[in-house]
Design a protein around this nucleic acid. Structure first.
Length: 985
RNA sequence: GGGCGGUUAGCUCAGUUGGUUAGAGCGCCUGCUUUACACGCAGGAUGUCGGGGGUUCAAAUCCCUCACCGCCCACCA
């Protein structure tokens, strides 16, 4: 049982074991409590679903580290901590990936396969490779509830998506129409505004002459996209533009139409405020089918829409020489033709922003097409209110403003995509009357004319539409749907995904299924919350990056507020906006950049693969590094050097455990019992029980100073970590535990404890007490570290119980209680005393170094100090001996001067050691000190002689300054005296 | 065009109700096999807190301004 730990910490030896253990033991699976019995506080988070095609990157790892720290922490506070994982079907990305695969195989194409076969092919891909990212998560020990893992295209979620769409349609919030959308000519689908980025590019502004039809003159327009000229239906000028006022209403001859062998097309000059007299020539050509502004002008002036570009952005114009040409080739050709006809009068340099498709990097072509839209304003209004009223809080707070700005300038959302992979829109077109029927189930007949020639809409929904519903759909919304159409998970324990043609369900997990099944069938009222919804909605926190604030966060808020307002509270009362929100808090974290603060990108080749780093340094070290760099406001420059440092920290913890193991072993051999303190540590199994009540143990009177001190510190640090995590200050929390464990527990406590753990002498109380205290502090420190370093602490915690010879109270340290203020007694007097002793020790060490006392040599010291400090030094001479190799302490009643003495504000101390003085070095040191003192004194004098300061500064500041002044004066005198003893230069 | 963030030690970063001598990790220098740990121990050096101006008894911290870096939003042909 009591296996000795290897000398050096090797994460590879322990991590996989525990990662598997946590999953196979279902430690983090959370059963849905019955809705009438929700007693424990919950802490619920939804994992931002990574794309199913994804591989884990540093951003994921940061996100998951933060979520995991919080989840583990809340779990250790005795709450029901539920973290729901899942993946997103990611329409475009996944379809592209499989299409690329097909292209690589070269045997068939998407089009040749056809819709059904192609989507089956994507499903096959998903089954084979789709769990890669979840597997990576498992390996990193994310304490999620795997029994609730979802995939956005599973039947249960698809039913919910369909339901949401139909309801929105019934509410009149979804409409279909021909509008200008952002068109990606490569993907040949519409994309939303958010999927478009803008790039400043150097381009040209072409001035083109359009002659008046009556031959009395011409107008020169300015354009950046001459290829759309063929679709012009008007030229607009500002109604107040004196240059053109008299021409309004006249007709122009569109250049180049003759080139197509047709008579010149005539287009009118219209007056519109959009035309800016200051820009270009003040006259703008109007192409409603290919520009959003022109589209609006066209609407205002009732102009026709002339489409001259197809879905590949090739010119489509029968009989035209440009027909079939790519848009950019057409541009060149048209420019040549315009020039040769003399219509091109000027070409000016013009940098302007170009719309780029985020996914393909191709220039977006605004295109008139038939799409489905969600009327967003009613949803946005609620979403704005929810944040305004504080129902949702953003951290950092400034994102509230960003959110607000966006939400207040929101446009209707184009939710249709011309893809095959995704949730197909539940609408059917009538072959007879061409009416559209929206329904939950395939309708038998057209809702308008009753004809039966119906074909389903081919478009699918934007991926973000379904992910925007997740906060409630993952918990079973809408429950028993009106038409009872949903295919619920059944009790079948052997799902055969491979043979499933039409149904795609989550793998069965016995842990949850029974409860959830009864939950669904119990929900007879269509609007009643499912038990999971009742127990877990709203979620508590969403942790995510700013890059999906609008894509996802904002949409979840809108859709959550919209749909959940209709779902009553568990007690049957109506739900208010405050409880309709999908989450109560949003924490936006930083972006992870490389060590040089460059954005990580594949093209730059500076992408740090978390799995590689993890293999090199261990998950815990990488987690700790990310946590310690995660301060709000700035991006994280991922530092491998820091990771190395944190692996050293892990090794330090490991070796502290080894030290304990040795002490326990020796203690046992000397007949000491270890366990007394363990028994007072509240460590019940938090999975099944609530947090045990607080009970601060009382220490025996014989408890040594350093134990009182470390207990006190542990208590204080626990509180500090709790505060930091409450504020999402992962950096402060990490730094607090680091400093505590290394700087206090290892550097001081372990060294001081060696003084007490002498097993060669007769058995005694102090040794017994110390041995048990040591175990207790270390055990608590492991619990403190556990949310940050789950693997290491799990291993060492079990090893500790093994060496003590007691069975661990729970299956995992993750199920024990997080250390709390008050778990250990606070003792300010002991803390103050130990701080003085530390100062004494550090001063002696420094002095020894200055004086060149050999490391191993012990030397006597003289101390001149107050009675209190003298007594302390006297009583703890053994500490001084051990920590600073002081052979004897002599308390003296007079000031100490000389080059072997040092003064601090608390005491003066001298080492009695004969040595050759390095006069120049000593002089340099003293002069440097003097300069520092003088500077300090001058500053203090300046302030103290300032009437305003004395009159206005708070008393404690003035007192402090005076005290400091007096102390510095003394120190200066000492230095001067010491300087005087040196031989003259 | 609008909005936001950053600029502190060689590097990466902490440091907001303004307050006594600005911190950490890494790196650097010196010395150490000491009841776990050289992934270690002990000691040490290092800052015009981006520039300028202002408010204040007092500014890294508040205000103005300039410079540089970065991000987000926006339908100017």
């Amino acid at each position: 049982m009591n296996q000795e730990l290897p000398k050096a910490y090797d994460p590879a030896l322990i991590e996989e074991k525990w990662a598997n253990y946590w999953v196979s033991e279902h430690l983090f699976d959370v059963p849905t409590p019955p809705s009438n019995n929700v007693q424990k506080k919950t802490f619920v988070q939804l994992l931002p679903p990574p794309n199913v095609t994804g591989r884990l990157h540093m951003g994921h790892m940061l996100n998951q580290t933060e979520m995991d720290i919080l989840t583990r922490w809340h779990r250790m506070l005795g709450e029901t901590a539920l973290w729901v994982p899942g993946t997103d079907h990611a329409g475009i990305a996944t379809q592209m990936m499989v299409e690329r695969q097909l292209a690589a195989e070269g045997t068939t194409t998407r089009e040749q396969l056809g819709r059904e076969a192609f989507t089956e092919r994507v499903w096959a891909w998903k089954r084979q490779y789709g769990s890669a990212i979840s597997d990576q998560m498992r390996r990193l020990g994310a304490s999620v509830d795997w029994s609730r893992e979802y995939f956005t295209l599973y039947d249960r979620l698809s039913v919910a998506v369909k339901e949401a769409f139909v309801r929105l349609h019934e509410q009149g919030l979804i409409y279909r129409g021909a509008y200008i959308v952002n068109w990606d000519p490569v993907l040949q689908t519409a994309v939303s505004d958010l999927e478009v980025t803008h790039e400043e590019r150097a381009g040209k502004l072409f001035h083109v002459r359009y002659p008046l039809a009556d031959g009395t003159g011409s107008i020169i327009i300015a354009t950046t996209r001459p290829e759309t000229l063929l679709g012009d239906v008007a030229v607009a000028v500002n109604p107040n533009d004196e240059r053109y006022k008299h021409l309004i209403g006249k007709m122009l001859l569109l250049p180049l139409s003759a080139a197509a062998g047709k008579p010149d097309r005539e287009i009118p000059i219209v007056a519109d405020d959009f035309a800016d007299p200051e820009f270009g020539t003040g006259a703008v050509k109007v192409t409603p089918a290919h520009d959003p502004n022109d589209f609006a002008i066209g609407q205002r002036h009732n102009l026709p829409q002339l489409n001259v570009l197809d879905e590949r952005a090739h010119i489509t114009l029968d009989g035209s020489p440009y027909d079939g040409m790519d848009r950019f080739a057409a541009r060149e050709r048209i420019l040549i033709d315009l020039e040769s006809s003399g219509a091109l009068v000027a070409v000016k340099d013009h940098t302007h922003s170009i719309a780029i498709s985020q996914r393909t990097g191709i220039v977006i072509e605004p295109r008139l097409s038939m799409q489905w839209f969600l009327k967003i304003q009613p949803l946005a209004d609620k979403a704005i209110e929810a944040v305004d009223k504080g129902h949702i809080k953003f951290t950092p707070d400034n994102y509230r403003k960003t959110y607000d700005e966006w939400m207040k300038n929101i446009h209707d959302w184009c939710i249709s995509r011309q893809l095959w992979w995704g949730h197909r829109i539940p609408a059917w077109h009538c072959g007879a009357c061409s009416a559209v029927t929206v329904a939950r189930e395939t309708p038998a007949a057209c809702s308008q004319c009753g004809a039966t020639e119906l074909t389903q809409e081919t478009d699918v929904l934007d991926t973000w539409f379904s992910s925007g519903l997740l906060p409630f759909t993952v918990f079973g919304w809408p429950g028993q749907a009106k038409t009872g159409s949903s295919k619920l998970e059944t009790g079948s324990s052997t799902p055969d995904l491979a043979t499933s043609q039409s149904s795609h369900n989550a793998p069965f997990l016995s842990f949850r299924s029974a409860a959830e099944d009864s939950a669904f069938s119990a929900a007879t009222n269509a609007h009643a919350p499912t038990p999971a919804l009742a127990a877990f909605y709203p979620t508590d926190l969403l942790v995510t990056g700013s890059d999906i604030l609008f894509f996802w966060v904002a949409r979840m808020i809108m859709l959550g507020c919209h749909f959940m307002l209709d779902v009553p509270m568990p007690d049957g009362s109506p739900r208010t906006l405050a409880d309709a929100v999908p989450f109560r808090n949003v924490y936006i974290h930083a972006l992870v950049r490389d060590a040089d603060r460059q954005k990580m990108s594949k093209t730059k080749g500076n992408v740090v693969d978390p799995i590689e780093i993890v293999q090199k340094y261990g998950t815990d070290a990488v987690r700790f590094t990310l946590a310690s760099q995660a301060s709000p406001g700035t991006d994280i420059a991922f530092s491998e050097a820091r990771t190395q440092g944190n692996r050293a920290f892990a090794n330090k913890i490991w070796n502290a455990a080894r030290f304990l193991q040795m002490q326990i072993e020796r203690g046992r051999e000397a007949g000491y019992a270890v366990s007394a303190f363990l028994s007072v540590i509240p460590a019940g199994d938090l999975l099944s029980s609530a947090l045990p009540p607080l009970s601060t143990p009382t220490l025996p009177a014989t408890t040594p100073l350093e134990t009182r001190w470390i207990f006190s510190r542990l208590s204080a640090v626990s509180a500090e970590v709790e505060r930091a995590l409450t504020d999402y200050r992962f950096d402060e929390a990490a730094s607090a535990v680091y400093q505590f464990f290394w700087g206090e527990f290892c550097d001081w406590y372990l060294e001081l404890v060696k003084l007490r753990l002498d097993f060669t002498i007769e058995k005694n109380n102090v040794t017994a007490l110390t041995l048990n205290a040591l175990v207790a502090v270390f055990e608590a420190a492991l619990r403190l570290l556990s949310p940050f370093m789950p693997f290491l602490t799990e291993e060492l915690w079990h090893a500790l119980y093994a060496s003590v010879g007691t069975e661990a109270p729970t299956k995992s340290i993750a199920l024990t209680r997080f250390p709390q203020l008050g778990d250990f007694p606070a003792d300010p007097a002991s803390v103050a005393a130990l701080e003085v002793l530390q100062e004494l020790i550090v001063t002696v060490r420094g002095l020894r170094k200055d004086l060149g006392v050999p490391e191993k040599e012990a030397a006597p010291v003289q101390i001149f100090a107050s009675n209190r400090i003298s007594a302390l030094a006297d009583a703890n001479a053994d500490m001084l001996a051990r920590m600073a190799r002081v052979s004897a302490v002599e308390l003296v009643g007079q000031a100490l001067t000389g080059n072997n003495a040092r003064a601090t504000s608390n005491f003066e101390i001298a080492i009695l050691y004969e040595r050759q003085i390095d006069v120049p070095a000593e002089r340099e040191r003293l002069e440097k000190d003097l300069a520092k003192f003088d500077k300090g004194l001058a500053a203090a004098e300046r302030q103290l002689s300032n009437e305003g300061f004395v009159a206005k500064a708070p008393p404690h500041i003035i007192e402090g300054l005076k005290k400091q002044y007096a102390e510095t004066t003394t120190l200066k005198e000492k230095a001067l005296a010491a300087l005087a003893t040196l031989p003259p230069r």
